[in-house]
Design a protein around this nucleic acid. Structure first.
Lengths: 219, 219
DNA sequence: TGTATTCAATACACAAATGTATTCGATACA
DNA sequence: TGTATCGAATACATTTGTGTATTGAATACA
């Protein structure tokens, strides 16, 4: 025990941070391909170009690594959604509901990297369903995202002289559910099936629901 | 090799069927608790009151056991949904949209055993996302259910002089997505949180959407 | 009742993954 | 430049799960 024991180790070296980040990147790929439960520590460290020593020196467990991954990516997605929503409705003034449909289509179609992220979300949800502690964290993230989305949508439709006839948070939840369900179906039918499940169809459905619960602001 | 080799073993003994069924029952519990990947053959057979010998004598792999489970339960759920839908709208004649809301609430609230089934559905979906062959099977089941639901809903609203303003299959998909998302949230907030996520709220949302996309049949 | 067959139990050999104790090289710092 | 520290590599012991080969009890059948 040194003289200044008890002092919290506030700094993490740059080297350590790089290693952790590379492990998280690798875990993203490996978890997406095999799932958290089936993924091995060896696979992750190999993908990252390390041996297992690096893992155990940086994380307690696979789960801890997953939560670090989820937190990082959740924040990235949250910020991107918020920024994207703002960027798409920059100018005040009149806008038609048809234009809104087009915007929804564009916006959703542009979301990159959906496959791995969707798989991570599902993994997270499964953990949440099986462990109440994880459940709290998961729900907190969901609520944060839905509240932000609801508030943003309120602002945005107000800009074009409209308002929602359903609570915007409830509507956000509905749209989120349809979106998740939709992209899952798109991924599943994917290249093998040029059938009716496309991102455009999902966008259309979302636009139709938005339209059904929107009305002009009375004067 | 006996004289009549090459003859297909058409019958499965009653004993064998009982063993398989007990293993499937046990797998339902074990998969729900730990997930397919984390579940061990030992856990399943122990839960069923067998040793691993019984498993390897009846199934090739955990996955084969899961597909047997999924097929059995999928059929049960499908039949129950179809029967339930019919039972709830038995008589022709006028009915108000408020009554429809009540019926939706009742009907959804009554679905038993949601927790394990939802977990199995999620597990199935994850397998489907990672394996195209499984994906085809999964999508086929989904499409079958949604088509049935859409057709049933068409009949039912027609009975009370209404029709949908959205394709009934698309609407079914929307309602299904909201329902899945909703019960997941209910399970997650569950007993720990008497907040806004209740089965009643989910039912209300569904009823509101049905209402928004329903109109009287013009004379 | 005796015989054949079926099927789960048992025992064993093997593979895979884990976690820890230790080593050793690289970086920081004096 | 020398020394201390940090962090990843390595080696090893252990655990855990798998799959198969064999056994033996129960059931079917004559």
């Amino acid at each position: 025990m040194s003289a200044d024991a008890g002092e919290a180790p506030v700094v993490e070296s740059a080297r350590r941070k790089r290693t952790r980040d590379r492990l998280i990147d690798a875990a993203y790929d490996v978890f997406a391909e095999h799932g958290i439960a089936a993924a091995t520590v060896e696979q992750i460290t190999e993908q990252a170009g390390f041996t297992r020593g690096a893992f155990y020196s940086n994380f307690e467990s696979k789960e801890e690594l997953f939560f670090a991954l989820a937190e990082r990516e959740n924040q990235v997605r949250f910020d991107r959604l918020e920024a994207g929503l703002t960027a798409y409705f920059p100018e005040r003034g009149q806008i038609t509901t048809d234009q809104i449909s087009g915007i929804v289509r564009d916006f959703l179609g542009l979301q990159p990297d959906n496959r791995s992220w969707c798989l991570m979300q599902s993994e997270f949800q499964m953990l949440a369903l099986r462990d109440p502690e994880v459940g709290k964290t998961y729900i907190a993230g969901e609520n944060r995202a839905m509240s932000m989305l609801g508030a943003r949508l309120d602002e945005l439709v107000a800009m074009v002289g409209l308002r929602f006839t359903m609570d915007s948070r409830e509507l956000s939840q509905v749209l989120g559910a349809i979106y998740s369900d939709g992209i899952t179906r798109v991924m599943l039918t994917g290249s093998s099936n040029p059938g009716p499940d496309t991102i455009d169809e999902v966008s259309d459905t979302i636009a139709r629901i938005v339209q059904a619960f929107t009305e002009p602001i009375p004067a």
